[in-house]
Amino acid sequence: MDTTNLITFLAIVDTGSFSEAGEKLFLTQPAVSKRIASLEEQLGTPVFDRVSRQVILNEAGKALLPRARQMLELVHDTKLEIINLSGEVKGPLSIATSHHIGLRRLPNILKTFTNTFPEVKLDIRFVDSEASYEMLIRGEIELGIITLSPEIQPNIQSKKLWHDPLNFMTAKDHPLTKLKSVTTEQLSQYQAVLPSRNTFTFQVVKNLFDQEGLKLQTAMSTNYLETLRMLAAIGLAWTILPLTMQDDDLRILNVKLKGIQTSPSRQLGYILHPKRTLSNAAKAFIKQLERHKDSC
């Protein structure tokens, strides 16, 4: 079975349309349609139903989906094992990372890595940490350097690299800065700017408020921590940020949390798929990450 046809099939499944699959694969829509027609001819049956401009997997497509992923994984792992025999560190390396980690943690690591291994072609995807898990499961990336999920994720191997303390912060002239210590109840009386609800960081804050039966007043949300920092610095609201982002225009609030002795925090690190063969490039990148463990 032609692997390019399977790749196109999965792209349509993941994007939900022929045209978006074409954009993802740098193909015209007629080329995408031709590949699917070839696949359906090989199988002797259609794999999609076209209903009101929607592309929906039919029963044959649903049966093919897990097998298509398995076949492409097998082909990918076989190629990697053969390439790895040479011991050379070269070829493509796809990684996903959040904007915050990419800006604050990775520059020196990436610079050293690219200087040491110039034949590696890096493909860096800047996405939300939560999305990295799905991308890894789908085989779109080899590594994710992200905020780790507080819950164990099936079929994912994770390794902590950095402890990332979080602090409640606001502008220097915000009313909360006049208080020697701030309770969660006092925080609830003012607006907050926070990452979106599906993020690990938002869940950290929400859990603190839920424990006391308090409601969060969120003025707006964005997953770009630099934007949250700016919004808090101009006095719009309070926020929670990594300690590394505090500067003269932001004041750290002395928040007293019931039943908690330490400030909330996140764990940053990398994730990989334990059942997939890693390229030599990925192995070398992990070594580079480990050298910077808890040093950034």
Rank of each mutant, 00 (worst) to 15 (best):
M1Q: 12
M1S: 15
I7S: 06
T8D: 07
E20G: 04
L25G: 11
L25W: 12
T28A: 06
T28G: 08
K34R: 13
K34G: 02
G44D: 02
F48N: 06
R50I: 10
Q54G: 09
A60E: 10
M71N: 03
E73F: 00
D77H: 13
S86H: 13
G87P: 01
S94Y: 14
I95S: 07
I95G: 01
S98P: 14
H99V: 11
G102K: 05
G102F: 05
R105V: 13
R105W: 13
L106D: 04
P107V: 13
N108R: 11
F113L: 04
T114K: 00
F126H: 05
V127R: 08
A131E: 09
A131W: 06
I137E: 15
R138H: 10
E140H: 11
L143Y: 03
P150G: 04
Q153L: 03
P154T: 11
N155Y: 09
I156L: 00
L161V: 01
L161K: 10
A171N: 09
K172P: 04
D173A: 11
L176F: 01
L176Y: 06
T177M: 00
K178R: 04
S181W: 06
T183N: 12
T184A: 05
E185D: 14
Q186L: 14
L187W: 09
Q191I: 06
A192T: 00
S196Y: 13
R197Q: 04
T201A: 14
K206I: 10
F209V: 08
G213A: 11
S221K: 08
Y224K: 12
L225M: 08
L225K: 09
L228Y: 02
L231T: 07
A232I: 10
I234G: 00
A237Q: 08
A237P: 13
P242S: 04
T244W: 08
Q246N: 13
D247S: 01
D249S: 11
D249C: 09
R251Q: 12
I252S: 08
V255T: 08
K256C: 01
L257G: 12
T262G: 06
T262E: 15
S263E: 15
P264S: 12
L268F: 11
L272I: 04
R276A: 05
T277K: 11
A282R: 00
A284Q: 05
A284S: 11
I286W: 07
Q288H: 07
Q288F: 06
S295M: 01
